[in-house]
Design a protein around this nucleic acid. Structure first.
Lengths: 136, 136
DNA sequence: TTATTACCCTATCGATTTAATAGAGTAAGC
DNA sequence: GCTTACTCTATTAAATCGATAGGGTAATAA
C-alpha cells in the first residue's frame, strides 16, 4: 500500500511542476489546493528539500520550488525518497538490500524469484516516468 | 512491503507443489522445513483452504495438500488471497476498488496515472507466473 | 532595525496493523 | 475409544501511520 506521505508528496511535486515559473509556492497554498493537512505536508516537503529535490525560501514571498526541471526528475528518485525501497522484500532491493534471516539460499527461494520480477517491472515504470509525465 | 503472511504462504505453497504426489503434508513438517512459526502458519494455511487453494485432511496421516495442479494456480489468485489488493492505491484496484476521498478527479490525478502503470506491470508478472513456476 | 512571514524542529497521540502465542475445541482415523 | 492433527477464538506486544500541537529560527520587506 502506498503511504499517504508518498501520495501527498507526489501531489505536491506535481503541483509545483505545473507552476509557470520557478517562484516559491507557500505550503499553505499547496495544502489547500491538494486537500492535505498542512502540518503533515510540512514534514514531507522538508524531506524533499533535504534530499535535493526541492529548494526553499524563507520570509515574505517565500515557499518551496523545484530545483531541477521536472523532466529531469525520475520517479525512481522520488519514490525512493518518499516510499523507501521499491522492492517488496529487502533481499531483492538494489538500494536497500538485506539478507533474509529465514532463507538459507536466495537462489532457490521461490519468493525471491517472484519478487525479483516484480521489482524489475516496477522499476521500469518508474524509470520511464519523470515528474513532467505526471503533470496533466 | 510484502507481509510475512504472504511470504510464508508462498513458501508453504511452493513446498507443497514440490511434493511428489498429492499426499497430505502436516503443518509441523512445513513449518520446520521453511522456518516458520507453526501456529502462525496454521492460520495462513487455513485461509488458503477456505479460498479453495488447499484441501485438508484430519486425523492421523492428515495434513494439507494442493487441490489443483500447480500450473493451474496463477499468482494473481494467490497474491490476492494472501496479500490483498495488488494495486498500491485503492482507486486503481480491479478487485478492491475504492474512490479516494481527497481526490476530486481521478482522470487528472497524477498519483492515479502513475499507479495505474505500476498495477498493470505488476499484474502482468503475476499473470505470467503460476505456482509451478516458483518450484526450483 | 523591527516586525512579519514562513520555514524548521521536536514531541506526542490514538488508531491501526502485524506477527506471534496460547489454549481449547472438533473431526477423522487406527 | 484414544490419539492425532486440523480448527477456531482470543489476546498480546511491537511497530507503523497519520495527524496534531507548539514553539523556535531565519530571512525578507518596509
Amino acid at each position: 500500500m502506498l503511504s499517504k506521505k508518498t501520495k501527498y508528496g507526489l501531489k505536491a511535486l506535481t503541483f509545483l511542476a505545473a507552476q509557470k515559473g520557478r517562484t516559491p509556492v507557500q505550503i499553505s497554498e499547496i495544502a489547500k489546493h491538494e486537500n492535505i493537512s498542512q502540518k503533515f505536508l510540512e514534514s514531507i516537503l522538508l524531506t524533499l528539500r533535504k534530499t535535493g529535490i526541492l529548494g526553499s525560501k524563507k520570509g515574505k514571498g517565500g515557499g518551496y520550488y523545484l530545483i531541477k526541471d521536472p523532466k529531469d526528475i525520475p520517479m525512481t528518485t522520488v519514490m525512493r525518497v518518499l516510499e523507501g525501497p521499491i522492492a517488496m522484500v529487502p533481499c531483492v532491493s538494489l538500494n536497500f538490500y538485506e539478507k533474509c534471516e529465514d532463507c538459507p539460499d536466495e537462489a532457490s527461494c521461490s519468493v525471491h524469484k517472484l519478487m525479483l520480477q516484480v521489482r524489475d517491472s516496477t522499476l521500469e515504470v518508474f524509470r520511464n516516468n519523470t515528474l513532467a509525465d505526471l503533470v496533466p
